[in-house]
Design a protein around this nucleic acid. Sequence first.
DNA 1: GCTTACTCTATTAAGTCGATAGGATAATAA
DNA 2: TTATTATCCTATCGACTTAATAGAGTAAGC
Lengths: 136, 136
Amino acid sequence: MLSKKTKYGLKALTFLAAQEGRQPVQISEIAKQENISRKFLESILLTLRKSGVLGSKKGKGGGYYLIKDPKDIPMTLVMRVLEGPIAMVPCVSLNFYEKCADCPDEASCSVHMLMLQVRDSALEVYKNNTLADLVP
Amino acid sequence: MLSKKTKYGLKALTFLAAQEGRQPVQISEIAKQENISRKFLESILLTLRKSGVLGSKKGKGGGYYLIKDPKDIPMTLVMRVLEGPIAMVPCVSLNFYEKCADCPDEASCSVHMLMLQVRDSALEVYKNNTLADLVP
DNA sequence: GCTTACTCTATTAAGTCGATAGGATAATAA
DNA sequence: TTATTATCCTATCGACTTAATAGAGTAAGC
């Protein structure tokens, strides 16, 4: 299941990408337009800022804005920041690899074999989409 | 993340598929070979039986066995039984469709758009693999 | 009738998720 | 300099899910 965090994050990013210029947009504005809990969205935008996708400005006229052009923001990045590993199992993860404790041999593991294919196919989708592609 | 239930279920099914003939195999035997908690595996095999993938036999010489040939068991079926919906969001699910409460229009929803592609790519993998393909 | 092994329900401990609260900090405007 | 605005950050909460365990019930074979 896709977490609400990721869902809301994607919606917020799309909303920002759809803006004219790069003027900061207030959290409340985004929350209202996209039907998202204001406080929850706050924490999501914060993690997006810390990961370098968003910039922010405090005080009057402040808010969040995209740092880069939407077409330069790949979905691989966004998904990893919001949802975490793209792989469904750590043992097939590129960025979050971990060996299975119970599995003696990865090469002959059926789960490993199948999940490798699933990871690759998902990765293919995320590689072929940038934030710009999500704007209607 | 793939649940342990699915992981264990896949391993157990692969183990059964790798057997000679269709002799029943005891839960304990599978649990031991695949490093799975016996009791937990018990409940997993039970759901696989109820979904028509496995058959069982009680008493001495009893156990679980595959009902069909491994190459006639598509991964789409196995994954849906063990893990549930293949889609990451209910609004793009084929077998478990549900409308998003917060989303006014699916057609113009960025999340919907992206997750549709992810679902299709995962589905493609599961369609192209049967249980027979998982046996090393 | 005794043993074996699946059947089924109930319980539990731990962890995660979504959401909320409230004060700290920084920037702008007057 | 002061008041206002809006992000920053930590802490907490209840609800839900997951993985695992316990134990009594049921059917099959010898």
